[in-house]
């Protein structure tokens, strides 16, 4: 188990390094010079060259990348060209909002979707199963920004029961009430998606030989479902949720823009708009790390649940 754990951790670090290198090269291959943008069109070539030298942009690309990683290891993500603030500070101000939103969205989707899928599989072809099926497909088909706008319209504008925008001024209750609508909008299609996946995989597992054997020993159906079938049936769901976090990192952009919530999504949109490369790069590093962390976590949970995965 520990061997698997350390191996997986090193693999995760390697993935982050490769991904960040690629993204660094890609961003710097895009036409447009940060020095020119920063100093404006009237700057003299000498001034630009001086700034470039200060930012380390006159060095060859491999040296720049090595320097970038060197800074990264010291916890330095560079400096915002416009405000002169530390990029690390700017990004980490926003990270908790996005992480909270994604975790809440996936969390409530899993809490409802997995039991719903499980129930649908056990009570196959009943009314509950059929209604769940239709609703699931509908919620999957509706884009999350449409869901966000309607949720806003109904609960904030018409019913006026929930705040429309922002992330609240602090305080647990305030934070929670500001989280409900965005988390609903982002997570609702995941309820349907997870319910469908769990139902399909549960039906498959319930048809497997070992379930038949458990039945041949007269084990109570409840024990068969919860101890024999469900732990196997949720395995693909956990992997899916790990990848889902990556999907939501981009999906959350909509929610953050619609609900005017601070967050990484909104930050990236602003930074790309204004070609604020150091901030873009900082966001990229953080989201890549979050993504790799989520998929690694999913793999580790899988390994905890499935002894066969530990040895793979």
């Amino acid at each position: 188990m520990w061997i698997y754990f350390t191996r997986r951790l090193f693999l995760a670090l390697a993935i982050v390094a490769v991904a960040v290198t690629l993204l660094y090269v890609m961003i710097h291959a895009v036409p447009g010079d940060p020095a020119s943008i920063m100093l404006g069109p009237r700057a003299t070539p000498e001034l630009k060259a001086e700034l470039r030298a200060k930012m380390g942009l006159d060095e060859p690309l491999p040296i720049q990348i090595l320097g970038f990683f060197g800074d990264l290891l010291r916890g330095d993500l560079g400096t915002d060209v416009f405000t002169g603030r530390e990029v690390g500070q700017i990004v980490f101000e926003k990270v908790p909002f996005t992480v909270t939103l994604i975790a809440t969205s996936i969390g409530w989707a899993a809490l409802i979707g997995i039991p719903l899928g499980c129930y649908s599989a056990i009570r196959r072809n009943t009314i509950v199963d059929k209604v769940t099926g239709v609703l699931s497909v509908s919620t999957i088909a509706i884009p999350s920004f449409v869901m966000a706008i309607y949720a806003l319209l109904i609960f904030a504008v018409w019913l006026k029961v929930l705040p429309a925008i922002g992330a609240g001024a602090g305080g647990l209750l305030d934070t929670l009430t500001h989280l409900i609508l965005p988390a609903f909008a982002v997570g609702v299609s995941w309820v349907g998606y997870l319910a469908r996946v769990v139902r399909a995989s549960m039906l498959e597992v319930l048809g497997e030989n070992h379930v038949r054997m458990a039945r041949a020993f007269g084990l109570p159906e409840k024990r068969i479902v919860f101890r024999y079938a469900l732990p196997i049936a949720v395995l693909p769901t956990i992997t899916l949720m790990g990848v889902g976090v990556a999907y939501l990192l981009s999906g959350a952009v909509f929610a953050e823009v619609v609900f005017a919530r601070p967050g990484i999504g909104a930050l990236i949109v602003d930074a790309v708009d204004s070609r604020n490369y150091p901030v873009v790069m900082g966001c990229v590093v953080v989201t890549t790390t979050l993504f790799v962390a989520a998929t690694t976590l999913a793999d580790l949970i899988n390994a905890l649940l499935d002894p066969r995965a530990r040895e793979g």
Partner: peptide, 12 residues
Amino acid sequence: FQDPMTALNPVR
């Protein structure tokens, strides 16, 4: 059962 490879629960 016929197939011992699948008759036992893999995660227990």
